[in-house]
Simulated assay, not measured.
Amino acid sequence: MDQIYELFNKIKDKQPLVHHITNSVTINDCANATLALGGRPVMADSSNEAAEMAAQSSSLVINIGTLAEETVESMLKAGKAANEKGIPVIFDPVGVGATAFRSDSAKKILANVDCSIICGNMSEIRTLAGLPSSGQGVDSGDSMEGAEALAKKLASELKATIAITGAIDVVSDGEHTVRIQNGHPMLAKLTGTGCMTNSLIGVYAGTDNKPFEAAAAGILTMGLAGETAHQNLRANEGTGMFRVRLFDAFSTLTVEDLKKGARING
């Protein structure tokens, strides 16, 4: 937790530039989440400039939510450029396993790019690990049973921090593993909270290249913001205002909120 507090306190001074090649459905929310936490978003997905942009960024977020062949090419170019500069790469394998193209694209990315952090739901992570999965589209169909052992094993195999999101989130770098119990069920009713979580992780990773701490911090931030957003809803307010309150919570989060509200254990 001390590492998370330190990361959070550095964000405003660093103002990390977070390069996204991300989901067109949620791109605006990802940009605004990045801004609200104190980072600077850039969304350059053309293969003509992706590598150049990645090389000058603080972190790179790759999200395969909406795929095209040119997008995959851009992801590979940006990922390799980030690797050459020692810039952390966050990979969100959205819906991997749903189609052959999506699965092949994820395999190609992992084979050619050293990802610092891989964050997805249980079905997505099971697919990456070569295990049977019950995912449907972008939704997880698998329980979190065995999540800690799976995250630890895959982290060791891929030499990356693995984050599995669910009712209780799990983060492991192969040596250290934590469970995060923050969040609210309404987060699952809003499009893009997973994508935004990876943007928040990108802010922390771009502030200081500490993948394990950055992954835990980003997931914790989303969980706490979800709790705060729900608490601040008024009578007769639903998911629309929950989304507004969520961005308010990102932008007003303090280190005291983290210290008071974090429910993390190893």
Rank of each mutant, 00 (worst) to 15 (best):
T254S: 15
N182K: 04
V170C: 03
E227G: 13
S134A: 15
A31D: 04
S143I: 10
L35A: 08
G39V: 05
A149T: 06
R234I: 14
A81S: 10
I62M: 15
A33I: 03
I62K: 10
I201Y: 04
C115P: 05
I219W: 07
I90M: 09
G97H: 03
A214D: 07
A55Y: 07
E148T: 08
H19K: 07
G130S: 03
N28L: 13
G137L: 12
N23T: 04
I117W: 02
V203L: 10
N265L: 15
M241V: 13
S74V: 09
G65W: 01
Q181Y: 05
D104W: 03
E73Q: 13
F250T: 07
L110V: 05
F242D: 09
F8I: 09
I11C: 13
K14P: 07
S47R: 12
N48A: 14
H19I: 08
P88E: 05
F247Q: 07
A111R: 00
M144T: 07
G97Y: 03
D104Q: 14
S156V: 08
G226P: 05
T252M: 06
D208P: 00
S47P: 11
A98P: 05
D257E: 08
T228K: 12
E237R: 04
M186G: 03
G97R: 01
S134V: 05
M1Q: 14
K159W: 00
L200D: 05
E69T: 10
C30R: 03
I118W: 01
T207V: 12
C195H: 09
K159H: 10
K85N: 06
N182C: 10
L7K: 05
G135L: 11
T71G: 07
G218K: 04
T26K: 09
K107M: 06
F8S: 13
Q136A: 15
S133E: 02
F247G: 10
G97T: 05
E6L: 14
G130F: 02
D2F: 15
Q136D: 14
A262D: 09
D13I: 11
A68P: 00
R40Q: 11
T34M: 08
A217Y: 04
H20C: 14
A100E: 12
G226T: 06
T239H: 02
G206L: 07
E73R: 10
I62S: 12
D114P: 00
I180R: 02
A68W: 00
K152Q: 12
R263G: 11
S59V: 12
P41D: 10
Q15I: 03
